[in-house]
C-alpha cells in the first residue's frame, strides 16, 4: 500500500527526513513512532502530497506521490495533527463540502454522509457549529472527513493529541474498528496506543528509520536487559551475592525491607528467563518467597533504547 524509497526532505541545509525506506502492506495497521521533531509529520506530508520530497520516491497503492500525485491523494484519507476544520460550518455542511471536493455527488454523497456520521458517532451533533464542539467530537469530525470518500489508506497524525483519557479510549476503539477494513498509518508518541492497535511499528528519529517490524519482534530483539522482581525472607545476608552468581544474571538491586519482605530486582540478559534458577536457589537456601515476577521489556523500552540521545 505504501512503498517509500530513500525518501528525503531537506529545508535548506537542515535535513528533516533522511533516506527513509519502508513498506506498508495492504491491511496493515502501522504505528509511526518518533520523538517530537523526528520527522513524522514531514514524512506524512510527503506521502499525502502536501510537500514534495527533495530526493527519493514513494508510491501509494502503486501511484507515485509526485508523478501521479492526484491519483495517489485519492487513495488517502488524511487527518492532520491539529484537525483543522472550518469553525463557522455545521458538521453536516462541512462533511458535505469535503465529500464534494473529493468527487462525491448525488445519492452516493448522501449515503456516505449517513455512513460516516453513523460510524463516527456524529448523528447527535450534525446540526451543531463546529466551533461549539468538544475536542473529542472535533477529532471524530476529522476522522469522518478522512473516511468520506472510502479511501484504501487512512493516515492519522497524532489522532489522540490533547484528548482526555475517556476520549482517547473512544477514539482508539474507533480507529480499531476502522482498521478492520483498510490500511491505517497512525503517527503518535503514545506507545500504549500503538501496542493496542498496531501490527507493525516504524520508529524514526532525527529523520532516519531506527526500526520497522512487528511490535513483538522489536521487544524480543531489544538489547536492553529484562528483570525479575523477587520478594523473599529468611537468612538472606548472602542473597545478593548468591543471586548474582546465577547464570545470565547481570546485576542485583536491593530495595531493602518492605512489609517484612526483602525486595530485589534481578537484572538478567535480554531474552533469558532466570525465574526457575532463582526459585531453585530460594528452595536450596530455605528462603521463603512470595513473589517472583518477570518484568518483560515493553515497546516503550524499545522506543527509549532506539531514540535516546546519549
Amino acid at each position: 500500500m505504501i512503498s517509500a524509497q530513500n525518501l528525503t526532505k531537506a529545508f535548506g541545509s537542515r535535513v528533516a527526513v533522511d533516506n527513509l525506506s519502508f513498506t506498508v502492506d495492504k491491511g496493515d495497521v502501522v504505528g509511526f513512532l518518533g520523538p517530537n521533531g523526528a520527522g513524522k509529520t514531514t514524512t506524512i506530508r510527503m506521502l499525502t502530497g502536501y510537500i514534495p520530497p527533495t530526493r527519493g520516491s514513494a508510491t501509494i497503492a502503486g501511484y507515485d506521490i509526485v508523478k501521479e500525485s492526484k491519483k495517489a491523494r485519492q487513495q488517502i484519507g488524511y487527518m492532520p495533527e491539529s484537525v483543522p476544520l472550518y469553525e463557522d460550518m455545521r458538521v453536516s455542511e462541512f462533511l458535505k463540502f469535503r465529500g464534494k471536493i473529493k468527487g462525491l455527488s448525488g445519492s452516493h454523497l448522501k449515503d456516505r454522509l449517513g455512513d460516516v456520521m453513523e460510524q463516527c458517532g456524529l448523528r447527535e451533533v450534525k446540526r451543531r457549529l463546529i466551533k461549539t464542539l468538544s475536542k473529542g467530537f472535533r477529532q471524530r469530525v476529522g476522522l469522518a472527513d478522512a473516511l468520506i470518500h472510502e479511501p484504501e489508506l487512512l493516515i492519522l497524525d497524532e489522532p489522540t493529541n490533547g484528548l482526555d483519557p475517556i476520549q482517547i479510549r473512544s477514539i482508539r476503539s474507533l480507529i480499531k474498528d476502522l482498521a478492520q477494513e483498510r490500511t491505517v498509518m497512525v503517527s503518535t508518541h503514545i506507545l500504549s496506543e500503538v501496542e493496542l492497535i498496531a501490527n507493525k511499528v516504524v520508529i524514526i528519529d532525527r529523520g532516519q528509520i531506527k526500526a520497522a517490524d512487528k511490535p513483538a519482534n522489536l521487544v524480543n530483539n531489544l538489547r536492553t536487559a529484562g528483570s525479575v522482581l523477587l520478594e523473599t525472607k529468611g537468612k538472606i545476608d548472602t542473597a545478593p551475592e548468591l543471586l548474582k552468581a546465577l547464570d545470565h544474571v547481570k546485576k542485583v538491586k536491593d530495595f531493602g525491607l518492605k512489609e517484612g519482605w526483602n525486595t530485589y530486582e534481578v537484572v538478567v540478559d535480554a531474552g533469558t528467563d532466570a525465574r526457575e534458577r532463582i526459585a531453585s536457589l530460594c528452595l536450596q537456601e530455605n528462603w521463603q518467597f512470595r513473589s517472583l515476577h518477570r518484568q518483560g521489556a515493553s515497546l516503550e523500552d524499545v522506543f527509549v533504547e532506539l531514540t535516546r540521545q546519549d
Partner: peptide
C-alpha cells in the same frame, strides 16, 4: 494559519 490549507491540498484539488 488554521491549517485548513493542508486539508484542502491533500485532497484531489490542485
Amino acid at each position: 494559519k488554521s491549517g485548513t490549507l493542508e486539508c484542502l491540498l491533500t485532497t484531489q484539488i490542485e
